[in-house]
Design a protein around this nucleic acid. Structure first.
Lengths: 141, 141
DNA sequence: TAGTATTGTTGGTGATACCAACGACAGCCA
DNA sequence: TGGCTGTCGTTGGTATCACCAACAATACTA
């Protein structure tokens, strides 16, 4: 027997949103795992690539990560020599994080992975539909 | 200093999707917690309300839950006397789950909570925009 | 200078999602 | 009829994401 769908759930925007997000996350996670990175890894590397050397607190704000998770992710990236850390000479509290050469090339590689993920997740969408979706989602967040 | 946004992240549909979903989840979780329920709880109750007595395997398929999570959630709901369970007389493997009277009224109460959540999450959206969003999200999932 | 705020670290929690293995049971079919 | 296949519910995990509290060190400020 094939169970029906729940109309209560189907008509909820939050339900459709969470299901769409879960599916996108599955695709993203699978492809990133193959490339040896986690979602947090990419978020940190992407922010470093876009904003340059930056302290962890700002890193967390830009990547929407808790300070705790920034600490762990950055240390993990540092262990893989993708980022380097040094004390901010102008503020003893801050640690400046920046991409290493290996980090930059890893980021470029991951950018391609992310492009593939977008393509797979948005398969069948026209460019106009993608723009519409993106703008609606931005207003939601 | 206010950190800028990462253009790499901002233009990713999967990023906007996960941020929108995270925000919706925060609202949902906060309101459901006040009402004494979890997201899994509502998903199970909603399916039972829509499809009536049903075995756990079908419950899991309709609510998009792993069998393990169905087991735990149903047992938790049973402990709160919101659902009842009995063996399917026609199939010794299956356990039929159904709403109790208390479960039905709890579901009605939670339906109102979910309505509030939709209103809060979609604040500022026109009816047409909500329809557009919903249809785009359905195609994503 | 005393009090306040921020930074990075540490040690947690909870929700969601998913997997593997198990015994019990049903259905199929040789 | 007996064996095989598959499903069901259960148990015991794991991974990711998101979030909180407390702490020492440092910076700011009133």
């Amino acid at each position: 027997m094939i169970p029906g769908a729940s109309s209560r759930l189907e008509k909820l925007a939050t339900w459709q949103l969470s299901q769409a997000s879960a599916r996108a996350h599955r695709v993203l996670h699978e492809r990133l795992a193959k490339a040896g990175a986690s979602g947090y890894d990419y978020r940190i590397l992407a922010v470093l690539g876009d904003l340059g050397p930056i302290c962890q607190a700002d890193l967390g704000r830009a990547a929407v990560l808790d300070r705790r998770d920034v600490t762990h992710t950055v240390r993990s990236l540092q262990a893989r020599e993708l980022v380097s850390r040094r004390l901010d000479p102008r503020d003893g509290r801050q640690t400046l994080v920046e991409l290493t050469a290996a980090g930059s090339s890893t980021l470029e590689r991951l950018d391609l992975v992310l492009d593939e993920v977008q393509t797979e997740v948005l398969a069948g969408f026209t460019a106009a539909q993608r723009r519409t979706l993106l703008s609606l989602l931005k207003r939601l967040a």
